[in-house]
């Protein structure tokens, strides 16, 4: 026993190195495989506040473009305002209508941290559990899909961007409805890849890709992008499509968080059917 202690003491540098490295790997693994709110992410108080101040300053540089975008969107909304909008707390918008039941509600939010040049990109938004944000909610902008909520703290949340190796979005080709999973290969922030499109579909450059109805998170028909090119790899019976993304991830500053109000009901029903099998 004494020999062991002497041995460890003699090589304490190596053992200390090993234990710290194991701690690091534990943190990485925990963050990757369990979608828990881990301590070390940018939604914690200290770093989120510094990043928020930094984003506040940066925001002034984009005011002009942002105003134009908002004005355009306002005009678009006004042109189809057949229904009345009622403003509630937390910028959530609900619609009252007797013929339709509302399925999705939208919360507007500001991006305080963003990245596009890494393999796994994340965003931080300035809305959190206080505003009713939960894990796995969808995040979109007026121009298309952004990502999915990953971690939530009291006033902030982090978003797993579409530009992430772990993101998969169920999407379809708008003109004929054939669907497949969309992933990001890490090459460029302007392009993603759509897999498993059957070869009988007549694709042309410029075809619109939207989200499919099979996702519990995303509403149907949210724009993702357009077909840039497609190929059939030898030995496969499917097209792999290169999709030009419609969202400009470099310019994100205001986004919408989408709540699926019927998600729980659908999930419970599906779980019950699963169990019966």
């Amino acid at each position: 026993m004494r020999n062991l202690i002497t041995f460890i003491w003699k090589h304490y540098f190596f053992f200390l190195f090993l234990s710290i490295e194991v701690l690091c790997i534990y943190l990485i693994v925990q963050n990757n495989y369990f979608q828990k709110a881990s301590f070390v992410n940018s939604s914690n108080l200290l770093s989120a506040n510094i990043l928020k101040t930094s984003a506040d300053v940066e925001e002034y540089f984009f005011l002009k473009g942002e105003n134009e975008k908002l004005a355009k969107e306002n005009a678009e909304l006004r042109s189809r305002s057949l229904v009345s909008f009622s403003l509630l707390e937390n910028n959530q918008y609900f619609v009252n209508d007797t013929a339709f039941r509302q399925k999705y509600s939208y919360i507007s939010s500001k991006v305080v941290n963003n990245s596009t040049n890494r393999r796994n990109n994340y965003l931080t938004l300035d809305k959190g559990s206080k505003q009713g944000i939960k894990n796995n909610m969808a995040v979109i902008t007026s121009t298309g899909v952004v990502g999915q909520i990953k971690d939530v703290s009291e006033n902030f949340c982090t978003v797993m961007s579409l530009l992430n190796s772990k993101t998969t979005i169920s999407s379809k080709i708008k003109k004929d409805g054939s669907y497949g999973p969309l992933t990001w290969e890490g090459e460029s922030f302007a392009f993603a890849t759509l897999h498993d499109i059957p070869t009988h579909v007549k694709l042309t450059k410029g075809d619109t890709i939207v989200t499919s109805a099979y996702s519990l998170t995303f509403p149907e028909n949210i724009l993702i992008g357009t077909v840039e090119s497609f190929e059939r790899k030898s030995g496969e019976y499917f097209y792999t499509v290169n999709v030009k993304l419609s969202t400009e991830f470099k310019k994100l500053s205001h986004v919408y968080i989408v709540t699926n109000m019927m998600k729980k009901e659908q999930e419970e029903l599906e779980n019950r059917s699963e169990m019966d099998k």
């Binding site: 710290i20 490295e21 701690l23 690091c24 790997i25 534990y26 943190l27 990485i28 925990q30 963050n31 881990s38 070390v40 992410n41 940018s42 914690n44 200290l46 770093s47 510094i50 990043l51 941290n113 990245s115 994340y122 931080t124 982090t158």
Partner: peptide
């Protein structure tokens, strides 16, 4: 890591 959202990668 706190700022880059990478939980331990930079530390490692």
């Amino acid at each position: 890591d706190l700022f880059y959202d990478t939980a331990g990668m930079h530390a490692a």
